[in-house]
């Protein structure tokens, strides 16, 4: 279970907290990436290395936010943790066993719309229980409960195209949470929403998470949101071959209120510290890549 030596060496500074007896600590980790590199083969046979040498671990009950410039490989990392992408090098470990195939213990909230357009909100959520052999009537009842929890009690019979972007995200959230997965992978879940809705959704997410703490890997490009939500913020460098360039503990008290926490002095200090790290990468992403 000890990370590969190359990866371990590169990350010596950061890995300090779990260097002592890697095996013992690895035991507790919900998901762990060790020296993960992911490459895509482009048309014409060229290889594009999106992320390289990523060491990242999320403990059960821990909320980790991943920030980085656009195109840095945040979604790619989540896909690796979900088992949708196979790393070219390195390993993915889920609750101490090597991941092969899909990560069955994780729920994934995709960056793009992923609801089945031919099912109503209710059916979209209820169908998530089908693989667990939950009887249909019970699944529907529980789906109704979850839709009520995300504030969509009166929208159960709508098809996705009749819902707003924010409502669709809430359905997707309910769809993911109803299965009660041990790991939550969220890819810019509030991406397309306006500032107010983002805050409402953020508070809703924190509330749900506080009631039932899971390991969370939360991708966002919004640093304020990352700090407001997470226990730890991980900064990804600009691609290609993006690496983790910074890792910051967010020691703000919980429970938090997204809209109010931004006013705290310590929040500002954290923001400044992390931004000084992120800013370099963001400007690199725009200067370096034609993307």
């Amino acid at each position: 279970m000890v990370g590969q030596s190359a990866a371990e060496g590169r990350k010596a500074g950061r890995a300090g907290m779990r260097l002592v007896g890697g095996t013992a600590l690895a035991h507790g980790e919900a998901v762990r990436l060790d020296g993960v590199s992911i490459a895509f083969t482009l048309k014409g046979g060229k290889r594009y290395v999106a992320v390289e040498g990523i060491d990242l671990a999320v403990m059960p009950g821990e909320f980790v936010a991943v920030v980085g410039p656009t195109g840095s490989g945040k979604s790619t990392l989540l896909n690796a943790a979900a088992g949708l992408l196979k790393p070219a090098a390195g390993s993915v470990t889920v609750f101490s066993s090597a991941l092969s195939g899909l990560n069955g213990r994780a729920g994934y909230l995709f960056q793009a719309d992923a609801l089945m357009p031919w099912k109503t909100a209710l059916d979209n959520v209820a169908v998530a229980l089908e693989p667990q052999k939950v009887p249909r009537a019970e699944a529907l009842a529980r789906a109704r409960e979850w839709l009520a929890k995300v504030g969509l009690a009166t929208f159960v019979d709508r098809y996705p195209h009749m819902l707003s972007g924010g409502q669709r995200k809430r359905v997707a959230l309910a769809q993911m949470l109803i299965r009660d997965p041990e790991i939550l992978l969220m890819d810019e879940p509030f991406g397309p929403l306006d500032a107010q809705t983002r805050q409402i959704m953020g508070n809703l997410l924190l509330e749900l998470w506080a009631a039932n703490r899971k390991a969370v890997m939360f991708v966002t490009h919004d640093l304020e949101e990352a700090i407001a939500l997470a226990d730890r913020v991980v900064v990804l460098s600009a691609g290609p071959a993006a690496r983790i360039v910074g890792e910051f503990k967010v020691d703000l008290a919980r429970p938090r209120d997204i809209s109010e926490i931004r006013l705290e002095p310590h929040f500002h200090a954290l923001y400044k510290e992390i931004w000084s790290c992120l800013r370099v990468e963001v400007s690199r992403a725009y200067a370096g890549g034609p993307a």
């Binding site: 949708l84 990560n103 994780a106 099912k119 693989p131 667990q132 299965r179």
Partner: peptide, 26 residues
């Protein structure tokens, strides 16, 4: 849509479930 498909797979659907809930309606 690959996203819809991946989402359904992440929900734990079997090949039969995918056929019924994703491929068939599409």
């Amino acid at each position: 849509s690959p996203v819809v498909l991946n989402n359904a797979r992440m929900l734990g659907m079997s090949e039969r479930g995918l056929l019924r809930h994703v491929y068939w309606p599409s």
